[in-house]
């Protein structure tokens, strides 16, 4: 049996979870789901379409909101009670955190961010390919354990319903949660303001060290505004204090996927590239024709961004008013 951790926020399903459910079916074994907290009981109906046969539901006073230790403890108790061959979650912040917590409690190995799983679930060892360096490198790895704890890298699998729906029969999982684990339950939140974010913007105008200063970003901001987009940047920029880290694209910043990414004065280091490579079109502006960003882009302008960017904005304005 494959047990899939369903991620949700106070009862609203994290769509990313459906990726792990889809991956779980490739084993050909029964797929069962685990939901944590009674706010998630209503999710059982959503899981039918994904081929889930049984939904194990864990209830406890400590499980009213997300808490990594309490959630990890529930997964550990589910593993002891149900002996699944494999436990899957999607490799989100929470997915990775909860399975690591469960692994620590069970003293079992855990593999984060697999993109391919090979072999039968019941074998002693599960072979896989997993992500290293935020996706710049891959690793073939083997996980040897009675229950294999694995997350599937977010976006590695497209969520798809099963050919035949499952019954998704609810089943109460008896758990005993030490009340002290409330110490890591969310204690407050500030809801996000509406508006385009770096991760969702249709156009990103990115600047690198070539921009030269914080003030140098004003023309990039103008171009972004003209196109309904946002400004992004490289780590060289954040390290210099020219832009806030919330603007950083890359391995340790944000993954972007805009229709168009302008990469201005960015060399295209591998750690930047992994954050930008999902862009549909890349236009690089660089003084160096050999820069990695230029050779990887679909389109490029060779020249000084301080001249090229304002010229593009002016041309857009000219055409808009024509």
């Amino acid at each position: 049996m494959i047990l899939v951790l369903i991620e949700h926020d106070r009862g609203s399903l994290a769509p990313a979870s459906l990726e792990a459910l889809t991956a779980a079916r490739t084993f050909g074994d029964a797929v069962e789901a685990l939901t944590i907290g009674d706010t998630a009981d209503g999710l059982a109906a959503d899981l039918e379409a994904y081929g889930v046969t049984v939904v194990h539901q864990a209830h406890d006073d400590v499980l009213g909101d997300y808490g990594p230790e309490a959630w990890g403890e529930v997964v550990a108790q589910a593993v002891r009670a149900l002996s699944p061959a494999v436990v899957l979650a999607t490799g989100t912040d929470r997915g990775n955190e909860v399975l690591a917590q469960a692994a620590a409690r069970l003293d079992l190995p855990f593999a984060a961010n697999a993109i391919e799983l090979r072999g039968s679930a019941d074998a002693d060892t599960l072979d896989m390919t997993r992500v290293r360096w935020g996706g710049s490198l891959l690793e073939d790895a083997s996980l040897t354990a009675p229950t294999k704890l694995v997350t599937v890298a977010h976006h590695a699998v497209d969520a798809a319903p099963a050919d035949t729906p499952g019954a998704a029969t609810p089943s109460l999982l008896a758990v005993e949660i030490d009340p002290s684990l409330a110490r890591t339950v969310v204690s407050g939140r500030v809801e996000r303001e509406a508006g385009v974010t770096l991760a969702t913007a249709p156009v990103v105008v990115g600047g690198g060290r070539g921009v030269g200063s914080a003030d140098g970003f004003a023309p990039l901001q103008e171009l972004a505004d003209e196109l309904g987009g946002v400004v992004g940047c490289s780590r060289a920029v954040t390290n210099n204090g020219w832009r806030n880290h919330t603007d950083q694209v890359g391995q340790t910043g944000t993954r972007i996927a805009p229709d168009v990414y302008f990469a201005c004065g960015i060399s295209g280091a591998i750690q930047h590239w992994v954050g930008a490579m999902a862009s549909k079109h890349i236009i690089a502006i660089n003084t160096d024709q050999q820069a990695n960003m230029v050779t990887k882009a679909g389109h490029a302008v060779i020249g000084d961004l301080h001249e090229v960017v304002p010229a593009i904005t002016a041309e857009i304005r000219r055409r808009k008013s024509a």
Partner: peptide
């Protein structure tokens, strides 16, 4: 229980870059 077997590079995105011109 987690053992690395071998490292590999992900498939590279190759692009025929169209240079749209030089400067403004």
């Amino acid at each position: 229980g987690l053992a690395e077997q071998v490292l590999k590079s992900p498939p590279e995105r190759t692009s025929q870059t169209i240079v749209l011109g030089t400067g403004p």
